[in-house]
Amino acid sequence: MFLVKNSFIRYLIMLLPVLVISCASAPKVTRTEAGEQIDLSGEWNDTDSQIVSAEMIKDALSRAWLEEFVRTKNNKPKIIVGSVLNKSHEHINTETFVKDLQRELINSGRVNFVASKAEREEIREERKDQQTGFTDGSTIKSFGKEIGADFMLNGTINTILDEIKGKRVVYYQVDLELIDIETNNKAWLGQKKIKKLVKRPGIKL
């Protein structure tokens, strides 16, 4: 019995460092406000997406094309966001950036916004399903009443990376183009640049 007890104590002593290390390495999570700016790696993040989308849409809506369209058509332009290609060296989720662009356009109140191709296909399936006889006839939505977009917004995200001895400079360039769908005329060209200096801790520069 004494030997068993000693063996158990020795086992606990051997296990103690493992438990201490495990506790010390456990992640500490702190909840913050969604709008708070936090930069950890220096890479593209939600703050960049929100700032760039807000500034570029503000610039787009302040240009002459919008006033000219409203004057000649007597209506708000209808816009759809196409593809934003990630040509940078980083993995950037462009879908969140596209959503930020969409939000800025819709919330501006100065344009009408058309659903994306994928969204339209899903809605068409729902509209088709309503024709199968299971839906109250007074609530069935008819085909052929979709609104066509006047302009499509496309763009790219590019980066230039310069790094030496623990110091890294990342240069982002976002280019957006607003294209007239009927004429292929480019109504607006926008560009936003971001430069970040990232220093690695523990390395003398």
Rank of each mutant, 00 (worst) to 15 (best):
E177A: 06
K165S: 12
N45S: 07
R63S: 11
S7W: 07
R120T: 00
N86G: 02
F8N: 01
H89W: 05
A54R: 12
V169Y: 07
E104V: 03
K165E: 12
G133P: 00
G190R: 06
E43D: 13
N184R: 00
N75Y: 06
I80T: 13
I147H: 03
M56A: 12
D136V: 00
K28Y: 06
R31D: 02
H91M: 13
E90P: 09
L197Y: 11
W44N: 08
E95Y: 05
S142H: 09
N184I: 10
S49M: 11
V29L: 06
S88E: 10
F2N: 11
F151H: 02
D46L: 04
S41G: 10
G35F: 04
L105N: 08
N45V: 06
L61P: 02
W44A: 05
W65P: 08
I147L: 05
D46I: 03
G202C: 09
G82Q: 13
N45E: 05
V198H: 01
W65A: 07
K186L: 02
L176Q: 01
T94Q: 14
K195Y: 01
F143L: 15
T139W: 09
H91P: 01
V198G: 07
K28I: 03
K117L: 02
M56K: 02
A60L: 11
W44Q: 09
V81I: 15
T96I: 10
V98H: 08
Y11E: 03
N107I: 07
L85P: 03
G148M: 11
S138L: 09
S108C: 07
V29Q: 04
G133L: 00
K76F: 04
I21C: 04
G166L: 00
E55F: 02
L85W: 02
N6T: 12
M152W: 04
F2A: 13
S41H: 09
K76T: 10
F8Q: 08
Q37Y: 03
G144S: 06
K167W: 01
Q130N: 04
F8C: 01
G155V: 04
N75V: 07
W65V: 13
L178P: 11
K117M: 04
F69Y: 15
E95H: 08
R110L: 12
V111D: 08
V81W: 13
